[in-house]
């Protein structure tokens, strides 16, 4: 058994595992730490740039008298214009001086869309749903890891498949979010809601995170296929599921902070 007493000199003397984990898992942890530094640098840059601009004043937002689930397209449409075509909300708020180049826009005025609820003011609801989808896919992943630790090949297949579906759902949500933002006129260098840095940082950080999610989905599919082929059952253990699981949880962890910084702060 593993409960041998090893003297301190031999702990780091080679031939054993000082951290009591396998080589592959330890190296995954080291990679995740370095990846965490990369994301931290992006979020540190975001925090510094965001507070180099003054926030939108609360009195300005309250003067809009925007209600939850109110139809903003109709409310802000010019008279005689079909409310369902074109963006009336952004030009109206630009005219009111709420969206301008010198103030950081309030995220609940920017990200207030929801699929099949066209024109309604639903702030932060969609991104909360995305967060819950990613947390749920993290749960199915860890249930897959747990099934692997018991050596249950069928359960691993089931949970890995659900994790892959969760990953695709999240990517679909992010594609929808990007499409809305781009259709509103946001580019890497331009932003109708306010300072161009807002759009540049949004595309940069959520794009970087989205590509991590995509890579995670590819890794999950590889593990799923290997498990169907019985690779891990033949090997006698499911450690590859655990290692890919660590990566997938890390992606969830990064999203927690992207959500905190882009949508809440």
């Amino acid at each position: 058994m593993s409960t041998q007493t090893i003297s301190k000199a031999s702990t780091w003397g080679g031939g054993n595992s000082p951290f009591n984990v396998s080589y592959g898992k330890l190296m995954m942890w080291v990679f995740l730490l370095s990846d965490a530094f990369t994301f931290s640098s992006l979020l540190i840059g975001y925090g510094a740039l965001r507070y180099s601009y003054p926030s939108t004043e609360l009195a300005q937002i309250e003067s809009l008298e925007l209600g939850f689930a109110q139809n903003v397209q109709e409310q802000f449409a010019a008279p005689g214009v079909d409310a369902h075509h074109g963006e009336h909300f952004i030009p109206a708020l630009r005219d009111l001086g709420i969206f301008n180049e010198f103030q950081w826009p309030s995220p609940d005025l920017v990200f207030n869309h929801f699929p099949f609820a066209h024109g309604l003011h639903l702030p932060l609801i969609f991104v909360s749903l995305m967060t819950l989808i990613l947390i749920l896919s993290s749960v199915t992943m860890v249930l897959g890891v747990e099934a692997g630790q018991r050596g249950d090949q069928k359960a691993v297949s089931k949970w890995m498949l659900l994790t892959i579906i969760g990953g695709f759902m999240f990517l679909g949500c992010q594609a929808w979010e990007w499409t809305n933002f781009i259709n509103a006129g946001a580019r890497m260098w331009a932003n109708p809601y306010g300072p161009p840095a807002f759009a540049a940082l949004f595309f940069g950080v959520t794009g970087f995170h989205g590509f991590h999610v995509f890579s995670g989905v590819v890794l999950n599919i590889i593990v799923y296929i290997n498990n169907l082929k019985g690779t891990y059952a033949n090997r006698g253990h499911y450690e590859m599921v655990e290692k890919v699981g660590l990566y997938w949880h890390f992606v969830d962890l990064v999203w927690v902070f992207v959500f905190t910084f882009f949508y809440l702060i």
Binding site: M1, I6, A9, S10, G15, S22, Y23, G24, R235
Partner: peptide, 17 residues
């Protein structure tokens, strides 16, 4: 080597498990 006296403590690659 002291590590060789601990015969049960041995790290293996997951493929050569």
């Amino acid at each position: 080597m002291s590590s060789q006296t601990n015969q049960k403590v041995d790290i293996h690659d997951e493929v050569n498990y």
